[in-house]
Write a protein that binds this DNA or RNA. Structure first.
Length: 703
RNA sequence: GCGCCCGUAGCUCAGCGGAUAGAGCGCUUGCCUCCGGAGCAAGAGGCCGCAGGUUCGAGUCCUGCCGGGCGUACCA
């Protein structure tokens, strides 16, 4: 018989829907026997049956209820309600057992029994030489929570971070450093990681300058009708400027037809820089003399405003004359720089090591702030060579093959799949340099072989789900069976209210900025709410509440949902947010403090808990039920890899505590109610603290 | 084209096949002589994207469609 909790306040017990299922069978059989269903369509007879089901279910439930009640099973009440059999417990007795259990177990309350399977959670994969941003923040929050929840569910867990300390991004950054900024690093070592991230962003802007310019021109051609209409006028202007020629004809022709401009088809180096000021003049004119937008049949609506288009032009304009001519040479220099890495040029390796250290120091600080600690630090640089060897072996085995000049694995073909499923994965660049896949093949094997794990989880955003399936499948094809136990936990992206985050647009919220803003706000609020705290205490609470809110915002959305990160919203500590839960915890602490009751003391009378009436108050029951639910929520959250479930749990628990708090005085109540309620407060405090801890959120005693 | 994900209140989101679909934000109105007002109470606000199907019972499972996002051979 299937049981579930009774979904109404004021009762505590189990409900069974068995009579509802039974009733339809009974009714169907009766109607068939009397011939009432003859000649009716399936739908009609179903309707007839369903009409009779509710009353029959209630009849049956009443009969069952009487039987059970007669059996004297120690239940408080047995009732039949709308076809359900509801069995209520003796709440005082169940409450006493529960509260005693929670207080005895303390910080261990909610934890499951030990399990044998060792799980490695790989999360937090920032790249050195780049900034730690809001996307990494979601990853680390989810990773920390997932790991803690799995540990609480009973698994031995190993936390692993995988640092991208080598790759094209590092080469680009170091090229830019050597070429333009050598020796300009900040004197303060703590500021160097962030500075390096800015150098990377600059290298990206320099190397992609031509692409960005052409992208803008293409955008104008596509959606700025006024601009396209003006091209004829621009042509005349150019004629007067004596820049006539094949290139101009090509350029304007492509733009008139909204086609992409291919850089290699431009013969003269300076045609775009010459054209550029005219584009700006036109865009400025469009901003100043704006006409209302008129939709045209068959022409897609513009995705940008004239102001935005002008802003993009203005962002590129200052560098045009200096950068445009140099881009091809720069790209060559970057290639040469990559070669220095490949041949392990001594001077270059030393530079790499030094700058890498700047970023790592930053990451260690950020991980500490976010409560992420790792049993293992993996680095991309450490698996490059093992990866290359694996590629070589796969080529020899015939699993990998050279296609279009580079080693790939045609996975579907190897599996004999007709329909396109795993597709093809390149596993090494044609120039012999390593790809992400080269390194992940080696790393995944390493996890199982060197670290003795039974299951390996990748906490990485959902865009890489095909990629991770490919990695696991390739390893299986290579005869590495454990790869089947490698699993991707793909969570959705972080976006901004104004759209996608892209380093190209330069709109990536940097973690340090977000954290600073949140701490400033938290300090303001503490100053206002609790000015008497010592300044050390204020600073500690600001950190607990500020960082806690940030984490909560990242965890309070399911992993299948895109997080729209709104700094304003993150700075609001009202409502469904960490401080609501933390505040409930602080108030519970304060009540216990006033009572002068330690938990050991409360434990003394927990066994004889008596709420002072036959049945505890509705809000007391609600709270007891919530406290009781933690162990089950931990298991479900772990099984589904969904920290959200625990986030919802602590919020619900805090809410029930508030209901209780407003309805039931604790300290002024007569005994034995006072002691019972005090013990309930202590158990609630413990459940709140334990739940928050699993999310990696601190539970302040005062705030 | 194929694959994965999302679509629930004005907005952001919960909702373990079950009883009356819930929170927060925003809006309206109340509540500190009482364990802390980062709170509480009340009100307004819903073709749970659409159409079929499975089931005694569907926001929840299945199929199709519509809308949006992401992925899909040398980025990571």
């Amino acid at each position: 018989m299937e049981l579930r909790a009774i979904p109404f306040a004021g009762t505590w017990g189990a409900a069974s829907s068995v009579c509802r299922a039974l009733a339809s069978e009974v009714v169907l059989r009766e109607l068939e026997a009397t011939g009432a269903l003859e000649g009716l369509s399936k739908k009609e007879s179903k309707k007839k049956v369903n009409e009779a089901v509710p009353t029959r279910a209630q009849d049956l439930a009443e009969q069952v209820a009487v039987r059970i009640a007669a059996g004297q099973n120690g239940f408080a009440r047995v009732e039949a309600v709308s076809g359900y059999v509801n069995i209520s417990f003796d709440a005082n007795a169940v409450a006493a057992r529960l509260v005693g259990e929670v207080l005895r177990q303390g910080v261990a309350y909610g934890r499951g029994g030990p399990r044998g399977e060792v799980v490695m959670v790989e999360h937090s994969q920032p790249n050195t030489h780049k900034a730690f941003h809001v996307g990494h923040l979601r990853n680390t929050c989810l990773g920390v929570a997932t790991s803690r929840i799995l540990a609480a569910a009973g698994y031995p867990v190993k936390d692993a971070t995988y640092i991208g300390d080598i790759g094209m991004h590092v080469i680009k950054c170091l090229w830019c450093y050597e070429r333009f900024h050598r020796g300009e690093e900040p004197a303060d070592p703590a500021a160097r990681g962030r500075w390096l991230g800015e150098i990377y962003a600059e290298s990206d802007a320099r190397l992609n300058f031509r692409k960005d310019v052409l992208d803008l021109l293409h955008l104008l051609a596509r959606e700025d009708q006024v601009f396209v209409a003006a091209i004829d006028r621009l042509l005349k202007y150019l004629w007067r400027m004596n820049t006539e020629g094949e290139d101009i004809a090509y350029l304007l022709g492509r733009m008139t037809h909204a086609q992409e401009i291919k850089e290699d088809l431009l013969r003269e180096e300076d045609v775009i820089p010459k054209f550029w000021p005219i584009v700006g003049a036109q865009l400025r004119d469009e901003v100043e003399n704006q006409k209302p937008y008129v939709p045209v049949e068959g022409v897609p609506e513009p995705t940008t405003t004239p102001e935005e288009r002008l802003a993009r032009w203005e962002a590129l304009a200052p560098q045009m004359d200096e950068w445009w001519p140099q881009v091809p040479a720069w790209r060559e220099e970057v290639k040469e720089t990559f070669q220095r890495w490949e041949r392990q040029d001594e001077e270059f390796v030393a530079l790499w090591q030094e700058t890498r250290g700047w970023s790592l120091a930053d990451f260690e600080r950020i991980f500490a702030e976010l409560g992420a600690r790792f049993d293992v630090w993996f680095f991309e640089s450490q698996v490059e060579e093992p990866g290359r060897r694996m590629v070589q072996e796969m080529l020899e085995q015939g699993l990998a093959e050279i296609s279009d000049g580079l080693p790939v694995v045609k996975i579907d073909a190897k599996l004999g799949l007709e329909t396109e499923t795993y597709r093809t994965l390149p596993i090494l660049r044609s120039d012999g340099t390593t790809l992400y896949s080269t390194k992940d093949l080696a790393l995944t094997k390493l996890k199982f072989e060197e670290y003795g794990v039974d299951r390996a989880l990748w906490v990485v955003d959902v865009r890489q789900s095909l990629y991770f399936q490919q990695i696991a499948k390739i390893l299986e094809l290579a005869g590495f069976d454990q790869a089947a136990q490698a699993q991707h936990i793909g969570y959705e992206m972080v976006r901004l209210p104004e759209g996608v985050i892209s380093s190209r647009k330069g709109n990536v919220p940097i973690y340090d900025d977000i954290r600073d803003a949140v701490l400033v706000r938290a300090r303001e609020i503490i100053e206002e709410k609790n000015p008497d705290l010592s300044s050390e205490a204020k600073e500690q609470v600001a950190r607990q509440v500020g960082i806690g809110s940030l984490k909560y915002a990242m965890l309070a959305r399911d992993i299948t949902k895109v997080v729209v990160f709104d700094l304003e919203e993150a700075l609001s500590f009202d409502g469904h947010a960490a401080p609501y839960v933390q505040y409930a915890h602080a108030r519970a602490c304060r009540i216990l403090e006033h009572a002068g009751a330690t938990e050991e003391h409360l434990l003394g009378f927990a066994d004889g808990l008596d709420f002072g009436s036959e049945q505890p108050e509705a809000t007391e029951l609600g709270l007891l039920q919530a406290v009781a639910a933690l162990p089950e929520e931990v298991q479900r959250s772990a099984a589904e890899y969904r920290p959200l479930l625990l986030t919802n749990y602590v919020y619900e628990l805090a809410k029930r505590f508030n209901d209780f708090y407003h309805a039931c005085p604790v300290l002024q109540s007569p005994e034995p109610t006072r002691s019972a309620r005090l013990a309930l407060v202590a158990a609630t405090r413990q459940a709140l603290a334990n739940g928050l801890d699993l999310l990696g959120i601190e539970a302040p005693a005062v705030m």
